[in-house]
Simulated scan of single mutants.
Amino acid sequence: MNNLQSFRSLQANGFGKNFEKLIDLACKYYRAEGKADISKIDEPFRVIRLKKAGRFEGQFTKNANPDFEGTLDGGRSICFEAKYTTSDRLKQSVVSDKQAEVLEIKSKLGGFAGVCIGIKDRYFFIPWEIWSNMKEIFGRKYIRANDVSKYEVIFRQGVRFLDYKYE
């Protein structure tokens, strides 16, 4: 990997982490309002070697599940993956096979499953039924912001993924 690719990879990782923090702010808001209890799920890993100054070498132990899980007021479960891009489109393939499998199961069991996405400065919560059938619905395996404008959510106290902008 050359320096430019390395920089872009680090930059994309940083955008993704910031996006997850904005979602976590909304989780705290929903918890305080009594609307939901939703938490970020850490990726499973193990420590291989301890280093100095609190550092360590680690290894992921299995494929990651979706990023957030919890319970909505009334008892319905919620489970979703978070994805962000600075480009004008987001590919369906950004959700891993393992994540898709989990989201499909949760959806079939009656949970509120989906993908919370950021495309540049717009934010959306796409229900799993829409995301998983992207090819049939949009004719391609990627979406643009205008394709999913009805799923746009508000940005206040974070990315408020339960509050659609146009409801």
Rank of each mutant, 00 (worst) to 15 (best):
N146M: 05
S9H: 12
Y84Q: 11
F138Q: 10
C27E: 01
Q11K: 13
A113N: 13
G75V: 03
I48N: 10
G58T: 00
A113C: 10
K106L: 07
L72W: 02
L103A: 09
C116N: 10
G54C: 08
I119H: 05
S9D: 13
T61V: 14
F60A: 06
P66T: 04
G118F: 01
I119E: 02
V115H: 08
N2E: 13
K40L: 15
E20W: 06
D121F: 02
D67G: 02
D88G: 09
S93Q: 13
R46V: 15
L50A: 06
Y84G: 01
K98L: 08
S149L: 11
N3Y: 12
I119F: 04
C116R: 05
F112G: 01
V102E: 05
R144M: 15
K120A: 09
I126L: 08
D88N: 14
S9K: 15
L22N: 03
V47D: 10
V115I: 14
E152S: 08
L103P: 01
R89H: 14
L90Q: 06
D147F: 02
F112N: 14
T86Y: 14
I38A: 00
V148E: 09
V95C: 11
G139W: 01
G54A: 09
N146W: 06
K98S: 15
A53T: 03
I48Q: 13
R160L: 04
D97A: 15
G118L: 00
T86S: 15
W128D: 10
D73W: 06
D163T: 04
V94A: 00
S149V: 12
E69Y: 09
Q92N: 10
E129L: 11
L90T: 03
Y166M: 05
N3D: 13
A32W: 10
